[in-house]
Design a protein around this nucleic acid. Structure first.
Lengths: 212, 212
DNA sequence: GAAACCTTGTGCTACACTTCACAAAATCCT
DNA sequence: AGGATTTTGTGAAGTGTAGCACAAGGTTTC
């Protein structure tokens, strides 16, 4: 076993995909799965799945494969999904609303505990059951719920300021939808979702396919 | 120069970030930038930027750096952003609407030419200036506009069916927001945006920070 | 105009990740 | 019961990516 070395980040990013696929299998009533079968569903090689899992232990049976439910439980435990994580969302435009209303967030171990916006006309409005709040309440809500996770869905011009506030208030990991790279301390995790950048990487390949 | 080898995909994915940063610099009135300065803005090493660009040519001046406007033009040309790309969006829930209304899409070389949904009660409704259409019109709109790019924002249960229809209709690159891995032919590009998976990779690290 | 300075482009090295391939262990089949 | 079959976990090999470090070429300064 390789427990001595910390698993690389690429491995950590794949674990949620494994977990999701296992959930689908469970819903389908499948009880056992091989790395081969699992891999075909998510376009990952069997060897990679086995190697990834080997960072955390031995979960399979030779000749058989993996017990779907058990492996799922293991991965969820590894990811810390044994309890719900409080999350605050800053920026309640169309995107922020889509996030706040998305079921997948609420049902997969993430509980949105606060919605914030700088627009005074929005304050107090309800999105589902949650009211939109003023930035002045950020610190209070974050410490009350001990939230460490935040989503930024404000315009690029405000994202850095918002990030600074969040970190000041105790946030330690940020999912940033704003099209800008945030400057943050080393002990804060930041991930980006940037659909336009993704689309632009696709236009690169499409350009070449057509003989451009 | 290394033009003989095709640039790796990681490099292609970074190009849009360089482009965006250069646009911001241009807005700020900066005319010249070194790989060092550019790198600090987007948390990439100077060497990596230079190496990435070297796949496509020599755009800088020794002792000086890069002309912001020229380099931006070059990168946009490489990415194929010299014209607007028609895009269809399938699934007009909260997320699809957020995408359709997002300015960044329309202003950065992407033009949404069709919105589609399976819900009969939505058909005909306008999102901005675009009407929501029935799937029966997918093929027509895609060939009329020669669209090759699509965004999938439907529930996971329908995503594969939608992908099949899109590919059948001529789509060659898909940005998929549905939490499922799509099975597609080798000549179709698929990229994923999966906020829940990203959040789950973050909970992994947060779990460990607290001495878990 | 020459010395000091700056920054690119790139060969080379180092590191990281993926895949291969096989012993070990479990089941299936007759 | 034992041989055939399946599939895991993992060292070792292979591949791909990032960073170093420096020659080359340009600018600034006096």
């Amino acid at each position: 076993m390789e427990r001595a070395e910390a698993p690389p980040d690429v491995v950590i990013r794949r674990l949620p995909l494994y977990a999701r696929s296992l959930r689908y299998l469970l819903d389908e009533g499948v009880h056992s799965v091989s790395s081969q079968e699992l891999g075909e569903r998510i376009n990952v090689t069997a060897a990679q799945i086995r190697k990834d899992l080997s960072y955390f232990g031995e979960f399979g049976k030779q000749g058989i494969g993996y017990d779907v439910e058990k492996l799922l439980k293991h991965i969820e435990h590894i990811l810390g999904l044994t309890h719900h994580w409080p999350v605050v969302v800053v920026g309640v435009g169309y995107l922020g609303q889509a996030i706040a209303r998305y079921d997948g967030f609420q049902t997969q171990g993430l509980r949105i505990v606060g919605l914030f916006d700088s627009d005074p006309t929005k304050i107090g409005q309800l999105v589902g059951t949650l009211p939109i709040m003023d930035y002045s309440r950020l610190h209070g809500v974050i410490s009350e719920h001990q939230a460490r996770l935040a989503v930024i869905a404000v315009p690029a011009t405000h994202a850095q300021t918002v990030a600074d506030m969040l970190i000041e208030a105790g946030i330690r990991a940020i999912l940033n939808y704003a099209p800008i790279v945030l400057q943050t301390p080393d002990d804060v995790w930041v991930r980006y979702i940037d659909p336009v950048a993704v689309m632009h990487s696709l236009t690169y390949y499409l350009t070449r396919e057509q003989g451009g």
